[in-house]
Design a protein around this nucleic acid. Sequence first.
DNA 1: CTGAAAGCGCTTACAG
DNA 2: CTGAAAGCGCTTACAG
Lengths: 330, 330
Amino acid sequence: MATIRDVSKESGLSIATVSRAISNPEMVSEESLRKVNLAIEKLQYRPNLSSQKFRLQRTNTIVVLVPNIANLFFAQLISGVEDVAIRKGYNVLLGDTRDNVSREEEFISLVDTRQADGLIQLRPNSPTKMLPSANIKAVNAAGCSGTPSYSVRIDNIEASSKIVKYLLDQGHQRIGVISGLGDNPHSVDRLQGYKNALAAAGIGYDEELVIEGDFTFWSGYNAVRHFVAMPNRPTALFCMSDEMAIGAIKGLKESALSVPGDMSVTGFDDLAVSNYSDPPLTTVRQPATQIGEKAAELLFQLIEGEAPKLKEYILPFELIIRESTRPYSC
Amino acid sequence: MATIRDVSKESGLSIATVSRAISNPEMVSEESLRKVNLAIEKLQYRPNLSSQKFRLQRTNTIVVLVPNIANLFFAQLISGVEDVAIRKGYNVLLGDTRDNVSREEEFISLVDTRQADGLIQLRPNSPTKMLPSANIKAVNAAGCSGTPSYSVRIDNIEASSKIVKYLLDQGHQRIGVISGLGDNPHSVDRLQGYKNALAAAGIGYDEELVIEGDFTFWSGYNAVRHFVAMPNRPTALFCMSDEMAIGAIKGLKESALSVPGDMSVTGFDDLAVSNYSDPPLTTVRQPATQIGEKAAELLFQLIEGEAPKLKEYILPFELIIRESTRPYSC
DNA sequence: CTGAAAGCGCTTACAG
DNA sequence: CTGAAAGCGCTTACAG
């Protein structure tokens, strides 16, 4: 492959002039520019950006740590990150960590070893699994309250509280919960929202009504058996993800219960598929794309040495009412 | 940040010895190794891999070109690529091209500019939109017949033919089709499979029964109106993606048609959600993860200068029979 | 506007 | 086993 040296020889100009013609054409005479371009054309020269990066000590690459790439919510968020990155001339390296700490560390080390300039973490921060060390430029996206680094997210407590309040307003009093894993901070925040809404309505919290899932279809499907078997069944189900809500609906139907006829069901996220489930899901929409965009903007500020105005950016969520819920009638 | 020179000074050994202690410890005395490790520890040294890559003219990075990152089938395939890549010490750069040629070119240029060693293309090859030029190391995954480069895929014609034959065996004679975009080679191959199955059963091909979608939920939902309005409605629907099948089912239900009671519906891909749709989808399972793994293996062979045995690897698909289909009863 | 030269942080023949 | 030195392909002060 042709190098800048070849272009220099071909054009009869020095390496320095060729370099300038490429990166700062205004520093070079018309005549030289023409010669250089001719030589580049002839030799099919492409600059070795790997060398350039090394020389400039800038990689123009960021890493996004994704717990699970097959999660549609993350996919949408990443689109937002990529849009901003492309506009800024950055590449996005996707690190599919599968919630595995050692895989996560491997990707973080891309920044340590100067193969990337910074990273966006999509896993919510928790005391047991912390974010990368403070000397790494990082932003947390779609996380939870109490994240130590810069972060962009919705108010999970408020959002859960709002959708549960909606169920309460519809007359439901016994509301079951299919939560995420207990050690996932989102589960904690969203359960808090549930409790808050209950408390505001003067209804006691009943541990029996909370079943732990893991955000997947299957876990929602599975959790529902518990509720079906209860002598005093809840009349509504608050699921902490759309996938679990869709799984739960399937489980209910198999037990010959109709949704929302016999039980109202709500989700969380508003995935594309949630409008096509039967019935279409009532859920909370997170502004996934915007969260990604904002997180990318913050990271680029950090990389460029600016200090973002706020430490924490809370974006608005939206309650989406479809047909998986209805007023309680005894 | 500490460099190899700092470690050299700290340990009292030459840069060359430090370099060897890191990459080829067996070339160095116990004593020196100890000194070097001590210095590394003390200085918190991390080698600059950007420099290393440049020096070795190897990036240990591959690019995967994805038409749409929010497509679950691709997400699963990418997991397979990543598994193999990590094992080989490679990073995977994800290029979300959104079926946009200029975005695709930008990502391909990562290889031209030596920021990546090769690429995996997930977009099916078509005469109008060709693969990257032949001097780039590339493998096509989940593509279609007639791909000029190395490729890994299922036999789309055979798979479609098989699922349509299944419908025919169930007694269906008028089978509607919701295809992908007409210029997508998958649409062409899968339509061919449909025609083959019809021909084998001695049934004529009726253009009226084919509606073009674009593989999304919405397009399936929308296409169904055409069939519902027909005086002589088909009794089964062959959809070229699971997403379209799920959209179609929603559309049929809204027209007060039951699935499979009034119409059988089949999908293509076998997404995770397809087992949770109502009714669960009869579909074709593509071995997404294995396609990704195999494609990655081929690419690494190319990068390492070996010639893969075959040009084209055809992996087996699987007919998944669930509850969205049933025998035709007049 | 242009060129000679230093240098980014590594690796690796070569000589000892 | 070890070190001095060349060099990977660029960029950029410095001098003219």
